[in-house]
Simulated assay, not measured.
Amino acid sequence: MEIEIIKCHGSGNDFLLIDEMTNDYSFTEEERANLAKALCNRTTDLGADGILFVMKSEIADGRMRVFNADGSEASMCGNGLRCVARYVCELLNKSTALIQTMKADLLVSKEEEIFPEIPTYKVEISPVSFQTSDLPLNVDAETLVDKKIPALTDELKFTAVAVPNPHLISIVEKEQIHSEIQKDISEFVNGPNELFPDGVNVSFVNTIQKGRIYVRTFERGVGFTNACGTAMSASTLVTCLQGINDLEQPVEVFNNGGKVRCVAHKNQETYKIDLIGNATYMYKTSVEVDLVNPAGFTCGNKEEFTQENQQYGKLQEEVKQYLTLSL
C-alpha cells in the first residue's frame, strides 16, 4: 500500500500527516497504532513524535486523530492541531475552520505571522478541567492546585489539569530545570503507579519575566519532546491562576523547539486557551508499506519545503540565544 505523507511540525514537535479526506485510505485501529510505531521510529527514514490522521467529519470541516510514537492515541495535541488547521484551511481555501477532536470540536484560524514568513495558526485548547478524576489522578482531593505530592517529591508543588489530555505542572527555579528531578518524576508517573494509572504529561515551568515563560515537557507516550502544545497552553493558564501572568493577556512561551504565544481566557467558571504558533511543513514523501508488517516500509523521494525550514531555523536560533542568556 502506498501512503502519501507530509512531515510537519509545531514548535519542533514533529508529525507525519496522513490525509484521509481526499485519499481512499482505510485503516483499522490496530493498523493505526502499528503504523505509528513503525513510521515514527527514529531509526528509520522518517521518525516523528506521532501521526496526524486528517479525516472527514460529519459535524466539522475536518477531524483529527493523533497516535503517539508508542502506538497510543492522544485525546488532544495542540502542536499537531496547528498543522491540521493549516492543512484543512488550505485544502478548503478557508481562513477559519472547525476541527473535530476526540473530546471537543475546536475553532482554528490563520493568524498574523509569529515570525517572518512562517505560517501561523491559532487553535482553541479546551475543555479545561481541574477535577482530579478527569486526568485521572488518584488522590484524596477533588482538585490539586499548587500542592505537594509527597509520593513524588517534597521539593515541588504541582497543579493537575486536563485540557482534555492530562497534565501535571510545576513552577520551578532554573536549577530544577537543569536537574534530573523531572526525568525521575516523569518516568515514575508514566510507569506502573497508583497515582496516575493512565500516565500523565509532566511540565516544568520557569518564569523568565512577566509575559514570558519557558516550558519543558515530558510527554506521555513520547518522552521529552521539543514542545507540547497543550502543555504550553495549560502552563500559561497555571501561571495566570498563580498571579505570575494575567488572563486575557498574551504570554510568550519558549520551548526547546522554538516559541508560541498563548492567551488564557475565563468565561464565568470555565477556561479556554488560545495557542498561536507555527505550522511548518518539512517535506512531502510517500511510503510503500505492508499493513501486516509496517516496520518493513520503504520511503520514496522527499520534496523539501526549503524556504519554510530555513525561516523556522532562524526563529530557533533566535530563541536558542535568548534561552542561553535567560536560563
Rank of each mutant, 00 (worst) to 15 (best):
L91C: 04
A74V: 04
C299A: 02
S186N: 00
T153G: 07
M102T: 14
D24P: 05
E317L: 15
L135E: 09
C77H: 00
P197C: 02
T225M: 01
L106Q: 09
K183I: 11
A151M: 14
D19E: 02
A295W: 10
N206E: 15
V88P: 08
M232S: 12
T143F: 05
I6K: 12
N193R: 02
I99T: 05
Q268W: 13
S109T: 10
D290N: 14
E304D: 13
T43R: 15
C299Q: 00
T120M: 04
L81K: 00
M102V: 14
I177W: 12
G313Q: 07
T143N: 07
I171W: 09
C8G: 02
A74S: 09
V189Q: 00
K284P: 02
N301W: 10
L107H: 15
T270V: 10
I273L: 05
T324I: 12
T298A: 02
F53Q: 04
E180C: 06
I273H: 02
S179R: 02
M1G: 10
I273W: 08
N226M: 15
P294G: 03
M76W: 04
A295H: 13
R86N: 09
F196G: 02
I208A: 01
G71E: 06
I5D: 03
K110R: 13
Q100C: 09
I6Y: 09
F204E: 07
E30H: 12
D274P: 07
Q209N: 12
L241P: 06
V163D: 11
D154L: 09
K122V: 06
G296I: 03
V128I: 15
N267Q: 12
G223L: 08
T43E: 13
T298F: 04
L291A: 04
Q242P: 05
S75Q: 15
